[in-house]
Design a binder for these strands. Sequence first.
DNA 1: TGGAATAATAAGGTCAACCATAACATTTTT
DNA 2: AAAAATGTTATGGTTGACCTTATTATTCCA
Lengths: 222, 222
Amino acid sequence: MTVMHLSESTEMYLKAMAELGGQDAIAAARLAERLNVTPVSVNEMVRRLGEQGLVSHIPYKGVRLTKKGREVACNVLRRQRLWECFLYDHLKIEWSQVYEFACSLEHATAPEVTEALAGFLGNPQTCPRGNPIPAADGSFKPLDAMPLSEAKLGEMAQVLAVNATATDVLKYLQEKNILPGRVVTVIEVAPMQGPLTLHVGGKDVALGLSMAEFVLVKKIDK
Amino acid sequence: MTVMHLSESTEMYLKAMAELGGQDAIAAARLAERLNVTPVSVNEMVRRLGEQGLVSHIPYKGVRLTKKGREVACNVLRRQRLWECFLYDHLKIEWSQVYEFACSLEHATAPEVTEALAGFLGNPQTCPRGNPIPAADGSFKPLDAMPLSEAKLGEMAQVLAVNATATDVLKYLQEKNILPGRVVTVIEVAPMQGPLTLHVGGKDVALGLSMAEFVLVKKIDK
DNA sequence: TGGAATAATAAGGTCAACCATAACATTTTT
DNA sequence: AAAAATGTTATGGTTGACCTTATTATTCCA
């Protein structure tokens, strides 16, 4: 297999797709949101990625990673999350900033460096946001979790991972103590796509549904 | 002072100038060589850098870093060399590859990360190639050294630093044991810009003048 | 001092990744 | 089934950093 050089932009698109969708088709508009570009730009880029065999696009249905695309994406996620570990555990970088800084580093990381870093870190299994780190061969087992947005009134759940990437969102979650390991209780579910109200760390917190989608939890039986 | 975002390319030009010239004016052709671009491209870029107040260009005389340009360059060198330390000391990356990998990382490194990294490393003073690491404020004392290319027949000298950057050059120097700390003796100086022959580590080594320019040494009295 | 070598500038081209605007297609909702 | 919302495609534009080829300017050296 030819190891072409993939641009930073390409890596960002593939990573975003892996973070958002996993196996499923992703609406181009969702991609545009996460990458902060216009839907028109996404369309163009998706065409280019399609030509390279990295994604398949079914008009009006969404974009899906091909096998090849998923491999690349897992590799990007591996680099990203290993750097997150390093920045958080060793450099003591603020939790909410770790993603952002790791993201820049990730695109500048050669395979030799990735593997040496993994060794240095002791082959960690999860990043500070709780997400699993794909193995060197690209394999990784997804979390057995559901988005907090699907939790019902009165349910208790433990946060397993935070899949948000924007620093301001991460900062908000950090301030409100919605972090991996924490246990939250849903004490109100507002109608009309309204926010959830949670009890966590002795306090009540309102959380919009779209943010709650990126908080992955495991239900706890009472 | 406005903190505009400087492109990777800008950083590379400024860094190359700091590595090559220090205070002096640098011929555009030398820059073109080191950066592997055409002189025409250098000229264009130098104009852009001039407009940003980072360099001053005196036609037919050369390019020189302005105060502002030198500050940026020192900052880039700091990041570069700190990463070299990390890659070499902690990730055990091959000496000859360290520069190349650090170079990619350097452009992707936020100030917070730079300073946290410096702390993690214990504020090292030199990189694995022997070059001084500028302080956070940009200050740094240049080596008291001369290029090996200026050594005379019969002289002994200790290698203080290697200022080469190309991986294949570094690999050659590594194989021939021309590394910081080593002591070399000049046993032959060929005429017509010919190579130096050195005695180092029990072996004789031929070294072209242009390579010898990037080996910084301190003369040793016998 | 005149020619060679070197340096600079001009003109026009490429490429990736964006952008805006507008037209058109499809899906969803009412 | 029509209107609204969403998604797609077309067209044309921008920016940065490169490229080639050709011309002109300056410096160096014999």
